[in-house]
Amino acid sequence: MEIEKNAALIVVDVQRGFEDAFWGRRDNPEAEENMAALIDRWQETGRPVVFVRHDSPREGSPLAPGSAGNAFKDFVAERRGRGAGPEVLVTKTVNSAFYGEPDLDAWLRAAGVEQVVIVGIQTNMCNETTARMGGNLGYDVLFPLDAMHTFDLAGPFGWTRTAEELTRATAVSLHGGGFARVVTTADVLKGAAAE
């Protein structure tokens, strides 16, 4: 797998509020380790990193601005500002990082970025929405499924799905629908190795 020299890593909503019991059972306990490895590789190779933070407008949300849950998890907070390449913080109130401040699409285009790698929380929510929009905007979107996680979810008609089922559905929809290439962290790390 070839990772472009200026491919951007988009780290979505890796916030303390997702450790709250509010969300329920999650999948992929290795997600944080894989996210950290990708951030490290991007920073070592001088590629651009986008840190995205969800500032929830919903009252009582664990991700509300000013709450402890709004802060990045420690492994992300301690990596911010350490890279040799460009970095930006995008804040948003909706699912897609492309509807945040500053304008992510404008920032990526100004940097000449055509390929993006999306990691973070949650697989089937903000990650998937950002990937779909990225694909629609013409980016080559890579989606390392083991560098993200989600939670069990209840829907309409009494339907429920486990985090694992939701992750698989997201992978099939994105990959099968041509929005993104679903890959592994190992694939991306190998492709982004320093030359």
Rank of each mutant, 00 (worst) to 15 (best):
P29L: 09
A64H: 06
W23N: 07
T150S: 14
Q122K: 04
F151P: 11
A131I: 06
I10M: 10
I3L: 15
Q43H: 14
V116G: 02
P62K: 07
Q15G: 08
R26K: 10
N127L: 09
I3F: 05
G178E: 02
P65M: 05
A106H: 12
L108K: 02
F75C: 03
A21G: 07
W23K: 06
N28V: 02
F75N: 10
K92C: 05
V49D: 04
F98S: 06
A147H: 02
R16S: 09
F151Q: 09
R181H: 12
L38W: 00
T123S: 05
T167V: 09
G60K: 06
S56E: 08
V88H: 01
I39D: 00
G178D: 00
R80D: 04
V113K: 01
A106Y: 02
R109L: 05
V76H: 02
V183G: 03
R41E: 03
V88W: 01
L63C: 11
G24A: 04
D55N: 15
G81E: 02
L63V: 13
I39L: 08
V113D: 07
T184M: 07
A110K: 15
G158R: 06
F98G: 04
L174I: 07
G100L: 00
N136Y: 12
V113I: 14
V11L: 12
G83D: 01
Y139L: 12
Q15C: 10
R53P: 03
L142Y: 05
A71R: 13
W159R: 13
A154F: 02
D105R: 08
F18I: 07
S56L: 10
V119R: 06
G24N: 09
T45N: 11
S56F: 00
A21C: 04
T123G: 08
A37W: 01
Q115R: 06
V94T: 15
T167M: 07
A154E: 14
R109V: 12
Q115Y: 00
E195W: 04
R181I: 05
D105K: 11
L166P: 01
R47N: 03
P48H: 05
V117T: 12
T162V: 11
A77S: 08
A110R: 15
W42H: 04
P29E: 10
M133K: 12
E164W: 08
V88E: 09
G60P: 11
K190A: 14
E195Y: 01
A77T: 04
